[in-house]
């Protein structure tokens, strides 16, 4: 009996772990900006994550797209979620600000008032 229980426990742990790892790999690796005033996000409001890569490329759910298509994606989401929609910007810290500025403007034009940035907490290097 005992060896079987051992093996079963090991399998349980293995599957727990592998599902955890699968969840972690949802996002592209980005060097997010550092901030001290960041808070953990527990809100369950609908959120659209837009990634801005270091070379200024925009990505929504893994798909690279030009700025105009980003605007249409936000508009499409606001039709579903309305004013509750939030936009989360995951940007690399080396991205030129013009790409962020343009994105902020589009958010304002499309009527999304809740825009926030994903950041890393400061830590000792």
């Amino acid at each position: 009996m005992t060896p079987m229980i051992d093996v079963t426990f090991l399998l349980i742990i293995f599957f727990l772990v592998s599902s955890h790892l699968a969840k972690q790999e949802n996002f592209t690796k980005l060097e997010l900006p550092i901030a001290t005033a960041g808070t953990p996000d527990f809100s369950d409001r609908p959120t659209l994550t837009i990634q801005v890569l270091a070379d200024g490329e925009y990505q929504i759910s893994g798909q690279t797209m030009p700025l105009d298509q980003v605007r249409r994606s936000i508009l499409a989401r606001t039709k579903i979620d309305g004013a509750k929609l939030r936009v989360r910007i995951r940007t690399d810290r080396q991205t030129d600000y013009e790409h962020i500025g343009a994105l902020l403007k589009i958010c304002a034009i499309t009527g999304v008032t809740d825009v926030f940035f994903a950041v890393y907490e400061e830590r000792m290097q």
Binding site: I13, V17, Q24, T39, L104, C107, D114, V119
Partner: peptide, 28 residues
């Protein structure tokens, strides 16, 4: 194995909330 597995090696992402932006008609 258990502690290796539960330790998260990914840095936790925080969110930096922004102030409320203007109504869209102010931008146009």
């Amino acid at each position: 194995v258990f502690f290796l597995a539960t330790a998260s090696f990914q840095r936790q992402e925080k969110s930096l909330t922004s102030a409320v932006a203007a109504a869209p008609d102010a931008i146009r």
